[in-house]
Design a protein around this nucleic acid. Structure first.
Length: 418
RNA sequence: GUGGCUAUAGUGUAAAGGCAGCACGAGAGACUGUGGCUCUCUUUGUACGGGUUCGAAUCCCGUUAGCCACCCCA
């Protein structure tokens, strides 16, 4: 093959595109009920939009970004996630002056230079939301609830919502200290990576999957026990209200976000059906990010759904069974021309009409109509042109109805059966 | 970035060093103006580049891509 799409980058073909549309359409409808408005953001940004917000020492920034110089030698990065560009736009356009809370959603491609695997691509698509302007836990609850609603509406049967709180700038440092102290003497039991992470990002030791590390960290204190009074209250309110709303969740104190900007609430939705790439959506609160971008202190919370990871889970339940309303068979030049004009007229009146492009035997044309599962067929030949009448054949029950050879008459006859 | 497995037609699969085949799909026709069945014909194929051999889809090396487990995440 001479040309191929790049590694980890895929084409999305029909009929799968219809599942994508279903997903996008359904989430848009839910977003509107919650007051979210669409925002369209650029795919490329100045690199420091990401390095400053996501964190210099995170894996995303350290090794997964598509970064390159443009012709003016500026460092450009293909967005690896949506929140940083959003906050940049939020501050740039003073969106904090809109009535609070400000709620936005977006959908589009993200780019990470990773080793591809099933459901993990270098260009992947997210549906994301951001809501800002209040620290109130009701917003957190609403966001988690909305996510669950979307997932249910698009047909996802089984999923788990995991939540935790990772504290704020007051309490997290205390936890970090306690964690390091508790693990200090056990470092020999941890893997090499964990030993490296111990120094600059000890929270990471909590979600290492190496069995020996899982075992060794059982002595680690839970961050939940170190939350300050406000964070504890915040978290407890969320849990309480999720129960009132009948939204099932599990607290996973080892849930750690890979991006530095998160505070307090962190959550992740997983599906066991996916193997090791089991996260289908994830998000959290980011109360300092707007200020970091030079805006007024504005708390916020958001999440992103990974489209590619949802698709295989709902594929079977979505059937795209839309077929042409009418197929026009034509015999001879004159009939073909007349048929073509009718085809266009009927399409403009709202019908899906097909006809044959080449001159073929009637048998062939009928076969084609059958193969594309056209609901009705008319045959247009010399007789019909002469008589000014045609038969509309219903392909399901084989019944034929005679109507006048006029666009309006055909439209009426076919529409009645729709 | 690390380790492993894999790559044959549009798709799914055979050919264990000796004729690249089968099924499905797709296109046309047999059947003079009515589809689904049947039959016939057609269909850009051994991922790419080298090597071993009289001879390679098959063995070896490299590249690329996909998959799996890590890492990390959506």
């Amino acid at each position: 093959m001479r040309f191929k799409s790049l590694k980890g980058i895929q084409d999305i073909l029909p009929p799968e595109t219809y599942i994508w549309q279903h997903l996008e359409h359904t989430s848009r409808k839910v977003f509107e009920k919650y007051g979210y408005k669409e925002i369209r953001l650029p795919i490329i940004e100045s690199s420091d939009v990401f390095t400053r917000s996501i964190g210099e020492t995170t894996d995303i920034v350290e090794k997964e970004m598509y970064t390159f110089p443009d012709k003016g030698n500026r460092s450009i990065t293909l967005r690896p996630e949506g929140t940083a560009p959003f906050v940049r736009a939020f501050v740039q356009h003073h969106l904090y002056n809109e009535p609070s809370p400000q709620k936005y959603y977006y959908m589009g491609p993200m780019f990470r230079y990773e080793r591809p695997q099933a459901y993990r691509y270098r260009q992947f698509y997210q549906i994301g939301t951001e809501a800002l302007g209040t620290e109130d836990p009701k917003l957190d609850i609403e966001v988690i609830s909305m996510l669950a609603n979307i997932l249910k509406k698009i047909g996802l049967k089984k999923f788990t919502t995991e939540i935790t709180s990772i504290g704020c700038k007051e309490c997290r440092p205390h936890y970090k200290t306690a964690l390091k102290k508790a693990l200090k003497n056990k470092l020999n039991d941890f893997c090499e990576d964990c030993n490296r992470r111990y120094e600059f990002n000890p929270l990471r030791l909590l979600d290492c999957k190496v069995p020996s590390c899982v075992k060794a960290r059982t002595v680690a204190p839970a961050i939940i026990d170190f939350l300050c009074a406000q964070c504890t209250h915040h978290f407890e309110t969320i849990k309480h209200n999720l129960e009132l709303l009948n939204i099932s969740y599990v607290v996973n104190p080892n849930l750690v976000r890979g991006l530095d900007y998160y505070t307090r609430t962190a959550f992740e939705v997983t599906s066991e059906a996916l193997g090791s790439q089991k996260a289908v959506a994830a998000g959290g609160r980011y109360d300092r990010l707007v200020k970091d971008f030079g805006g007024p202190p504005t708390p916020g919370i958001g999440f992103a759904i990974g489209i590619e990871r949802i698709i295989p889970l709902i594929k079977k339940s979505i059937v795209h069974d839309v077929y042409p309303d009418l197929f026009i068979c034509s015999l001879g030049r004159e009939a073909s021309d007349r048929g073509f004009i009718m085809t266009e007229q009927l399409r403009n009146r709202g019908l899906w009409v097909e006809m044959n492009y080449d001159e073929l035997s009637l048998r062939s044309q009928m076969r084609k109509a059958d193969r594309i599962k056209a609901k009705n067929v008319i045959v247009l030949g010399e007789d019909e042109l002469k008589k000014g009448k045609i038969l509309i054949k219903d392909m399901q029950n084989k019944k034929e109805t005679e109507v006048a050879l006029e666009t309006e008459e055909i439209l009426k006859a076919v529409s009645n059966k729709k």
